[in-house]
């Protein structure tokens, strides 16, 4: 006989009713679950996914790599012009990410509801701007700027800036919205203006997180930088496009290999840097 049984009394206590989801909520919950499942089934049916073809892709991919792309033309990527384009790519990613992060710090500040200097004007404007930059793909930015400014590094840097703003702006704003408001209240209470509230009340709390996001932004900006050249916005993407078009598969393989190596190196450096920053006080 359990302890609790004694509490309910010796007599047969009336049975109590309880369910986790009460009537109208339970209907919505199960309705939505059913809807999601039905849509998955419908989509799979509509796409007519052929499982045997799907399982065969690895075999055919191996075939393709072994017969057409192997061996990669290593001499090609040792060429001075190509090395120059790699350096250009790194410069583009660096500048794009740097400008993007600088803009994002202010944009994120304006777009954070809790500390935005003007909730009526700056907040909605900053929100819309971030959304706009986010919703446009980096390649579309690149095409746009190449059309306006012509070929070269400048449209690439601008496209990467837009991309970085869209990427980091929203993350910065979210990070700032999650701060502890006590410090902000204290600075406000002693007569600090908006910039002082930001520098003293907000920045010390988000410095580490923002640095982490900034490094991450550099990381994705670099990956984006390797392909914006596809549309003529500078960097190694142009070489990739040309060789793909000319069906120079061995050279393409070498270029892909060089991108892979560079991305891995950049990934390692940024992982190390983020780790270092997260340990910093």
């Amino acid at each position: 006989m359990s302890q609790l049984h004694q509490m309910s009394g010796k007599s047969d206590a009336t049975k109590r009713e309880w369910s986790r989801f009460k009537y109208p909520q339970s209907l919505y919950k199960y309705g939505i679950t059913l809807g999601v499942v039905l849509f998955i089934i419908y989509s799979l049916h509509y796409l007519n996914v052929d499982l045997s073809r799907l399982f065969g892709i690895f075999g055919r991919l191996g075939d393709l790599l072994a017969n057409r792309y192997y061996p990669p033309d290593i001499e090609y990527i040792k060429d001075a012009d190509y090395i120059g384009s790699i350096i250009e790519t790194i410069q583009m990613a660096y500048l794009g990410a740097l400008f993007g992060i600088l803009i994002s710090i202010f944009l994120g500040w304006f777009a954070a509801y809790n500390v935005s200097p003007s909730r009526r004007y700056l907040y909605p404007v900053a929100r819309v701007v971030t959304m706009l930059f986010r919703s446009v793909h980096e390649m579309i930015w690149a095409i746009l700027f190449v059309t306006i400014l012509g070929f070269g590094m400048l449209p690439g840097v601008l496209a990467l800036t837009m991309f970085s703003v869209g990427f980091a702006g929203k993350l910065f704003a979210e990070e700032i919205e999650a701060i502890h408001m006590g410090e902000v209240e204290a600075i406000r209470a002693m007569g600090g203006n908006h910039l002082q509230v930001f520098v003293y009340g907000v920045v010390p709390q988000v410095r580490v997180a923002l640095t982490g996001i900034a490094i991450y932004t550099w990381d994705v900006a670099f990956r984006a930088a390797t392909v914006v050249g596809f549309v003529g916005a500078g960097g190694m993407g142009w070489y990739l496009k040309r060789n793909v078009m000319q069906i120079e598969t061995h050279r393409t393989a070498a270029i892909l290999l060089s991108i892979l190596i560079l991305v891995i190196i950049s990934e390692f450096i940024s992982a190390w840097a983020r780790n270092y920053v997260s340990k910093a006080k």
């Binding site: 006590g182 209240e185 204290a186 600075i187 209470a189 600090g192 003293y200 010390p204 410095r207 006080k281």
Partner: peptide, 26 residues
Amino acid sequence: IGMIFQEFNLINRMSVMDNVLSGRLG
């Protein structure tokens, strides 16, 4: 108007000295 808070509301990542100096922000 000086204000002292229940949860202190100090800037945790700054030094004691910087916290005290921040009283001059206005």
